[in-house]
């Protein structure tokens, strides 16, 4: 078959990872001052930034305040220079709108929305560089930003994608792996309760394989959680120290 050999017979992927390995993760909380919460994450070459504003009063004509819960407003956008080929519209196209909606749904399911009736929380995510797993990076960054903003959630939301090649599930697929036309499953999960907040699949996958692919994706989510949790703890202890000093 034409196309790239995504998984070598020796068990290495094109970038040198083994099937179950995540890409290199770098993340930071509280990167910006203006926003109430912010975070930056790098998963391999995918780089995402999230800022959170709120909760604040409901502004603008769009939504009416809800009497029993907070409005979550998400906006996903991609920098024009984030992709291999220049993007003309950073947001507002169908893909971005879909992503915004996915994010909104994900966080409506996890933020303790009943705590802030009649108000609004804005979550903005910006992809600075895209190399596959954009949604995952956004969810992870947004989770950290929400934590940074001090907004209570039921649990972390961690997201991870997985693909399926040569009867082997691959974790955290890169753009190159995504674009070969194979199935890609994206899962956003609450790692402690193992509940799935969002599940998305592109291309066809036979139902017999779903279980293993799903398992790999949720394993990825849990690995992600470990990294994120460590970063949050580190951030908090640093904050505590600086407070003591002052």
């Amino acid at each position: 078959m034409a196309g790239l050999e995504l998984l070598s017979d020796e068990g290495f992927r094109l970038d040198g990872r083994r099937p179950s390995e995540l890409r290199k993760i770098r993340l930071r909380l509280g990167v910006f001052d203006q926003a109430d919460g912010s975070a930056y994450i790098e998963q391999g070459n995918t780089k995402a930034l999230a800022t959170v504003y709120g909760p604040h009063e409901v502004l603008g004509g769009k939504g009416k305040p809800l009497h029993d819960k907070v409005i979550i407003n998400c906006q996903y956008s991609m920098a024009t220079f984030s992709t291999n080929e220049r993007k003309n519209r950073p947001q507002g196209d169908r893909k971005s709108t879909e992503m915004s909606l996915h994010l909104q749904r994900t966080f409506e399911a996890t933020i303790q929305t009943h705590l802030y009736p009649r108000s609004q929380i804005d979550i903005f995510v910006q992809i600075l560089q895209a190399d596959g797993g954009n949604y995952c990076a956004c969810v992870n960054a947004a989770t950290l930003a929400i934590i940074n903003a001090g907004i209570p959630m039921k649990d972390y939301v961690c997201a991870c994608s997985s693909g399926y090649v040569n009867n082997t599930p691959l974790t955290d697929v890169s753009y190159l792996e995504e674009s070969q036309g194979g199935p890609v499953v994206t899962v956003a999960m609450l790692p402690k309760s193992e509940q799935i907040a969002l599940f998305k699949m592109d291309n066809r996958l036979h139902v017999d394989h779903l279980e293993q692919v799903l398992e790999v994706a949720s394993k990825g989510c849990k690995d992600m959680y470990a990294v994120m949790n460590a970063a949050v703890k580190e951030h908090v202890s640093r904050m505590a120290k600086s407070m003591e000093c002052s």
Binding site: N45, K47, F81, N84, L128, Q129, D131
Partner: peptide, 25 residues
């Protein structure tokens, strides 16, 4: 820092942060 761009830079002037990416076509 942004390798998909042909040239890029990130500036922090105090808290003000601006990123610039250049793509050639």
């Amino acid at each position: 820092s942004i390798s998909t761009a042909h040239g890029s830079a990130l500036v922090k002037l105090g808290n003000t942060t601006v990123v610039c990416g250049i793509k050639g076509e």
